[in-house]
Amino acid sequence: MSSRLQQLTANIESALGDKLGRLVSHVGELTIECSVANMLDVCLILRDHPSLKFEQLIDLCGVDYAEYGEGSWSGLRFATVYHFLSISLNQRVRLRVFAADDDFPVLPTLVDMWPVANWFERESFDLYGIMYEGHPDLRRLLTDYGFVGHPFRKDFPMIGNVEMRYDPEQQRVIYQPVTIDPRNNVPRVIRDEGFHHG
């Protein structure tokens, strides 16, 4: 671990204290984990503490851990991962927060702290179904208004649930149940064990 990363680790541990759930260093990057209950306090400290100054939220994304580790995952299912940048101190950190309820995942919104979170949270809601409590306009962003389900969830069917087409008789776009036959996406292994080079 570089001295710069060691210093950032010490600064994070000192600033967050008992609000820090876990701090993981991997390939030169730090990932902070905290509980939902401490999330807003942790984010405020990350943004405002003089030794951290993570003034910019670069990105956030939802994650579904349902099949993580080839099904060996036993933790909570849904998380949001946040990527922060300190321009003034030239440092980065990642924050991962798991939603406490797998059936109805909810995390607090960060729109009030970082307005850029608005569309990122909408995307995460649309694709994973993670709700962001306090979001000013939480609605779908990438899928259609009538779309059912959340397509990045591991249990969402690869062919979807409905298909859309133009019906010339009704002169409008209609939705109907999927009529595509499911495909086997497992690659076939071809072995020619009786083949001999002559």
Rank of each mutant, 00 (worst) to 15 (best):
V106H: 07
I32R: 00
A15Q: 08
S3P: 01
L5C: 03
Q56S: 11
M113D: 11
S88I: 15
D41Q: 14
S86Y: 11
A79V: 10
G62I: 02
V189C: 11
A100S: 14
I12Q: 00
V63Q: 04
I12G: 01
P187D: 07
F104P: 00
G62V: 06
Q91F: 02
G75W: 07
Q91K: 13
W114L: 06
I180P: 10
E67T: 06
L44T: 13
D137E: 13
L5Q: 05
L141D: 05
F156D: 09
A37I: 05
E55P: 02
I174M: 06
E33T: 08
D101G: 06
S2H: 13
S88N: 10
H83Y: 14
S124N: 14
I190T: 14
R139S: 12
A79L: 07
V27E: 14
L110W: 12
D144Q: 09
D59N: 07
Y132Q: 02
L142Y: 06
V162F: 15
G129F: 00
T80Y: 06
I180R: 09
T9A: 09
F78C: 00
S88K: 15
Q56V: 07
F54C: 02
I130D: 01
E123P: 06
R22C: 08
H150Q: 05
R153M: 03
F195C: 05
Y68M: 11
S86L: 07
H150W: 13
Q176I: 11
L44E: 11
E67V: 04
R165E: 02
P182V: 11
G146L: 10
R96I: 12
Q6E: 15
E163D: 11
R96S: 05
F98V: 01
Q170G: 07
E163F: 06
M39W: 02
I45A: 01
P168Q: 04
R47M: 03
W114P: 01
Y132C: 00
F125L: 11
S14C: 09
H135Q: 05
F78D: 00
D18H: 10
D103Y: 12
T109A: 03
I130A: 05
S35N: 05
T9K: 15
